[in-house]
């Protein structure tokens, strides 16, 4: 009984953070800010849901697949975010109007 309650609470929290991350993808002004919101919130939300599934299912095949999914998400998602951010900066997509400094562009000029 208490196990099911904890699992359902984790699934609810994960769904809420997934929704907030997608809302950030729509609301924030440029590529980099959208990447920040989307990567953090959606990774944490999906990991929370998979953790809840593992708690609900216990040590069987379904639960181990959920654990494998958590490990894969935590390794893959920051790498994809980093690659997309670098590609966007190198293909000269402008930053949002309120941006203060861009020291990466300064260093690329020197090279």
């Amino acid at each position: 009984m208490i196990r099911e309650t904890i699992g359902l609470i984790l699934i609810f929290v994960g769904t809420a953070f997934d929704f907030l991350g997608v809302l950030g993808l729509v609301r924030l002004p440029d590529v980099y800010n959208r990447l920040q919101a989307a990567t953090k919130c959606v990774t944490f939300g999906s990991a929370g849901i998979l953790c809840g599934v593992f708690i609900l299912q216990g040590f069987n095949t379904f639960g181990f697949k959920a654990l494998l999914g958590i490990a894969f998400i935590f390794m893959a998602s920051p790498v994809a975010a980093h690659v997309i951010a670098r590609a966007a900066h190198r293909s000269k997509i402008a930053l949002a109007p309120g941006t203060k400094t861009d020291q990466y562009a300064e260093d690329k000029e020197l090279r």
């Binding site: 609301r27 002004p29 941006t99 203060k100 020291q103 562009a105």
Partner: peptide, 19 residues
Amino acid sequence: HVAYLVIHPMTPIKPGIVR
């Protein structure tokens, strides 16, 4: 932190790239 930024009506961000 990200949830606060997204829900806030004015999205109070001050972005920049630093080394």
